[in-house]
Design a protein around this nucleic acid. Structure first.
Length: 422
DNA sequence: TCTGGGGTCCTAGGACCC
DNA sequence: TCTGGGGTCCTAGGACCC
């Protein structure tokens, strides 16, 4: 029988901030998205105040002021590093580990059935807390979907204290009946609405729904989900993820961009970042898309467009990508609009080691590769942006704001936390 | 004044081929 | 009257995830 544990970091970004600033413990804390736009993580105290996920910051200012909510800009360098520490800790417990997202992992526990799994879950939870400072909850069940349900119980039930094993649960049906459909992994807003229209409101009623009807309305995804709720594992542990299919870098601007020159600077910057990620994955790109858009929330003239460029030869060189990307911007940019966002997408990726040559390719690939290697190493060691392209510009007035960002405690020497003894 | 960013998978429909 | 059938590939769009 298949057996999974879902390990989920509690309020992950908030917990990362708390590790380095314990005074935040017990207080309402939120972390904001890029550009300090919306709420992306809340402490339990912040949730209790009614602060929703994805709510724009300006809509909750009154709550922030009244309850002295601690607000942070997101610090992805810190969260990425902390995530890696958590995942390395989990890897101590099993080689069969799927890192599902920045704050979640599935562990295969097949073959562990002779143990007391709740006890094992507690050991995992305690070890992660001790080694990284991050609190997690653990859900255990025969399928990934049920492990998610178990994880939800682990988090909410006081008795569970952060660990819940569904396989030894006395009354599984009652528990599924207490799980609203919209809280099931794989059921989003649209499907929840549709299911409710048909009287399906809980995980239990979805499990008991007619499979053919589900297949007809929700396709194979829905059918798989119903089977998973029945305890039939359809989603295997994916412990060696396939190579990325696409790389996107896009940002909202800190203030509107209204000139072609500034737009080109922003796109040059995004292209540089995308190219770095591409080289990290040892991939090369064959299709590059540039897009830009005005602010759809505003009542003003709207325009958005994209240029897709098929490259003659797959490349991982920032210079190649810059040339095409900037040409793309020139093609789609229209004067007279206030732009809010732009981005670069790299698709149709191939392994960098297998790039197809081109008879008419005049460039010295080897030289450009050496240059890129030097550039990446330098930026890696000396800090991002140490060496960058003239096309990115100097002023960067378009750059997003992070006004309340915590220090990069774990990844920059000059921002290391200091312990003072008095 | 102020509304994120980066992904995956599935499906339907059209083009094209034999 | 009556205009094949089946496969593949690609793309756009819709759903979802964190």
């Amino acid at each position: 029988m298949a057996l999974f544990a879902l390990v989920d970091c509690n309020n992950f970004y908030v917990s990362c901030e708390r590790v380095f600033d314990p005074k935040l413990e017990g207080k309402p804390v939120v972390v904001l998205s890029n550009n300090d736009g919306i709420v992306v993580a809340r402490s339990n105290e912040a949730k209790a105040l009614g602060i929703g996920m994805g709510v724009p910051e300006f809509q909750i200012r009154h709550l922030i002021r009244r309850h002295d909510v601690q607000v942070f800009s997101s610090n992805y360098t810190l969260y990425g590093d902390m995530s890696q520490r958590v995942m390395e800790t989990l890897a101590q417990f099993t080689p069969n580990l799927e890192v599902y997202s920045i704050d979640e992992a599935f562990l295969s526990l097949s073959g562990f059935t002779s143990r007391d799994l709740t006890e094992y879950g507690r050991t995992i939870k305690a070890t992660v807390k001790r080694w990284t400072g991050i609190p997690v909850s653990v859900g255990i069940a025969e399928t990934k979907t049920l492990a998610k349900v178990a994880g939800r119980v682990a988090k909410r039930s006081i008795g569970a204290a952060g660990v819940f094993d569904l396989t030894v649960c006395q009354d599984r049906n009652a528990l599924l009946a207490l799980t609203p459909v919209e809280d099931i992994w794989g059921i989003g807003r649209n499907w929840a609405r549709l299911l409710k229209q048909h009287g399906i409101t809980t995980a239990l009623s979805l499990r008991e729904a007619d499979v053919h009807w589900v297949r007809g309305t929700m396709g194979v995804v829905g059918e798989r989900l119903v089977r998973e709720l029945h305890g039939v594992s359809c989603l295997a542990l994916d412990d060696c993820p396939p190579p990325k299919q696409g790389i996107t870098v896009s940002r909202s601007f800190g203030r509107s961009v209204t000139t072609l020159a500034e737009m080109k600077e922003a796109v040059a910057f995004y292209t540089g970042r995308a190219a770095e990620k591409l080289r990290e994955e040892r991939l090369a790109v064959t299709v590059l898309t540039v897009f830009l858009t005005t602010n759809t929330f505003k009542d003003e003239p709207q325009y958005s467009n994209a240029a897709t460029i098929k490259l003659p030869v797959a490349t991982d060189s920032t210079f190649d990508m810059l040339r095409h990307a900037l040409h793309g911007v020139e093609r789609i940019y229209r004067d007279g609009y206030r732009y809010k966002k732009a981005g670069v997408m790299l698709t149709a990726l191939v392994p960098a080691s297998q790039v197809q040559g081109d008879l008419f390719d005049q460039q010295d690939r080897e030289r450009s590769r050496t240059l890129m290697r030097v550039l990446d190493r330098l930026n890696d060691h000396m800090g991002a942006g140490t060496l960058r392209y003239a096309a990115e510009g100097i002023t960067k007035r378009w750059q997003a704001r992070f006004e309340r960002r915590s220090p990069a405690y774990t990844t920059r020497w000059e921002e290391l936390p200091v312990a003072k003894v008095s």
